Amino acid sequence: MNKSFYQFALAYRGGSKRDPYARFAEAMFNDHGFPKTSREFDGLSRYLEEKADADMPAAVFDELWRAYEER
């Protein structure tokens, strides 16, 4: 079974508060509207652009997305 991006990124929760991936994962987890089942870049990117949360910046999303695709 392929994991959704949300399931993939949750692996970064619990890290250092200085780790941008850990901050992203924690903010994503606490965002009850986050598209948890999505596996599509465009929809997730659009959601994050509209949300504009400082703890879920587009640059960090892009890096996590690359890691998600490579897994």
Rank of each mutant, 00 (worst) to 15 (best):
N2H: 05
K3H: 09
K3C: 01
S4E: 09
S4P: 09
S4K: 12
S4C: 02
S4Q: 08
F5E: 08
F5T: 05
F5R: 11
Y6A: 00
Y6I: 01
Q7K: 13
Q7A: 10
F8Y: 05
A11M: 04
A11Y: 03
G14T: 09
G14S: 03
G15M: 08
G15V: 07
S16E: 15
S16Q: 15
K17Q: 08
R18G: 09
R18N: 10
D19M: 04
P20S: 05
Y21G: 00
A22F: 02
A22N: 07
A25P: 04
E26S: 07
E26N: 13
A27P: 12
A27K: 14
A27Q: 15
A27N: 10
F29S: 14
F29H: 14
F29G: 10
F29E: 14
N30P: 08
D31C: 06
F34P: 00
F34C: 03
F34A: 11
P35R: 09
P35I: 12
K36D: 03
T37E: 13
T37I: 06
T37D: 12
T37L: 12
T37C: 06
S38P: 09
S38M: 11
S38W: 03
E40G: 09
E40F: 10
E40P: 00
E40L: 08
F41A: 06
D42Q: 07
D42R: 09
L44H: 01
L44P: 01
S45W: 12
S45M: 07
R46K: 10
L48I: 01
E49M: 13
E50A: 04
E50D: 02
E50I: 08
K51H: 02
K51N: 02
A52I: 15
D53R: 04
D53K: 01
A54K: 11
A54D: 12
A54G: 01
A54S: 11
D55T: 08
M56N: 04
P57S: 04
P57A: 01
A58L: 12
A59V: 10
A59K: 15
A59P: 02
A59M: 11
D62A: 14
D62Y: 15
E63H: 09
E63G: 11
E63R: 15
L64E: 00
W65G: 06
W65T: 04
R66K: 08
A67Y: 11
Y68D: 05
E69F: 03
E70G: 07
E70Q: 15
R71L: 07
